[in-house]
Simulated scan of single mutants.
Amino acid sequence: MTHNFVLRFRSPDRPGIMAAVTPLVAAQGCDIRAAEVYGDPETGHFFCRMELVSPVDHETLSTKIAGAEDYLLDWDLKDLAHKQRVLIAVSKFGHCLVDLIHKQEIGQLPIEIVGVVSNHDTMRKTVEWHGLPYHHLPMSDGKEAQEARFLSIIEESGAELTVLARYMQILSDDFSARLDGRCINIHHSFLPSFKGAKPYHQAHTRGVKIIGATAHFVTADLDEGPIIEQDVRRVSHAVVADEMVAIGREIEASVLSRAVRWHAEHRIFQNGNKTVVL
């Protein structure tokens, strides 16, 4: 019996890192099926993601890898057989939500959607038709009470990642801090330009020729979190704001699904206010 693992680590960048790690996994009979590395000259950090086929279990291999901790700043070993548990938050626009559900159902995303949270009831029928729990959390009881219930649903569902799929609420600083590194937002604009509300209308007013969407980690600073993925489409002077919105929906769905897949495949490292995706 074999196991498929992902070994990820970062360390201070110096010679001999891979020479120290690879013998440890090879000695356990592991086959390295893929490896991506990046050395950041600005931060002096080295990043690595390895896919391993291992004849030994997670505990055994973890014990051996710990022997290289003189080299590794931090590391984790993930089992690829485990599908990441994801909770999705949405408001009234369902294009990103439906795309994520569909891609999970056809096996394109290695995730298990554990439920959907919304401050509106708009998407209930769609979500429940797919057999998923729908949690309606209106803002009528106040932001603090609503976020407390939201956090309890994250904990009760065992969600490892929360995805804001056009969830049109600004999260409190405390909520954002508690989900640090475990919450991805899709912003319907090519950040850092056109933050906040109605970015396509802002873009149209400025006469832009390229529009886009940005998936990023959520932080207390609105639309300022580390960027994971972006994409763009070219538009002309003849494209009005509402047409930009329609084009943007397609971009948003594809950008968000890629970011979620990369997170579920353990490809994303936070590197200060940036990310490394291997």
Rank of each mutant, 00 (worst) to 15 (best):
I65Q: 01
I88F: 07
A213S: 15
H82I: 07
R8D: 11
T60L: 09
Q108K: 14
S54D: 00
M123D: 02
S236F: 04
A241C: 08
R8A: 14
I227F: 07
A66K: 12
H95L: 09
E250V: 10
V218A: 03
I184H: 00
D121S: 15
D99H: 13
R178D: 13
V260H: 00
V98R: 14
S257V: 10
D242I: 01
W262E: 08
G142E: 14
V90I: 11
V240G: 03
R124Y: 06
S118R: 12
S91D: 11
Q169V: 07
V232A: 12
V245N: 05
N185E: 09
T205E: 15
I228P: 14
G131P: 05
M168N: 06
R258E: 13
I113A: 04
Q202C: 13
T275K: 03
P41K: 03
L80H: 04
I186Q: 04
H120G: 03
Q230E: 04
F46E: 01
L278P: 15
V260W: 08
A145Q: 14
I17N: 11
S54L: 03
Q270C: 14
A81E: 14
A68C: 13
T43D: 09
D76H: 10
S54V: 00
E105F: 04
N119M: 13
P110K: 06
Q146Y: 02
E243P: 05
S152D: 15
P55E: 08
D180T: 12
V163T: 04
T162C: 08
S62I: 05
V208L: 09
V117H: 10
V240P: 01
S257I: 08
P199F: 04
K78W: 04
L151G: 11
Q270A: 10
Q202K: 10
M1L: 12
S157P: 06
A89Q: 05
T60W: 00
E224Y: 06
C30S: 05
H188Y: 08
V255T: 07
P133K: 06
H135A: 03
E112V: 13
P41M: 09
H136A: 12
R49G: 10
A66C: 08
V239W: 02
D70N: 15
H102Q: 09
R234T: 12
R166I: 01
R85W: 10
K78G: 00
T2W: 05
G115Y: 09
D221F: 11
I247G: 01
G158S: 05
R182L: 02
I268A: 06
P12E: 13
E112A: 12
V114S: 04
E144D: 15
V86N: 00
M168Q: 07
Q28V: 00
H237Y: 11
C183V: 03
D221K: 14
G107T: 08
H201A: 10
K209E: 15
S257Q: 10
I228G: 01
D221T: 10
A241P: 02
A246L: 12
P41I: 05
V255G: 01
E112H: 15
E36S: 09
H95R: 07
Q230N: 02
S62C: 07
E265I: 02
F175C: 09
G248S: 05
N4T: 15
V86H: 02
S176L: 07
N4K: 12
D13G: 10
V98Y: 11
L80V: 07
S176I: 05
E160A: 04
A66G: 15
K83H: 15
V98P: 00
V116N: 09
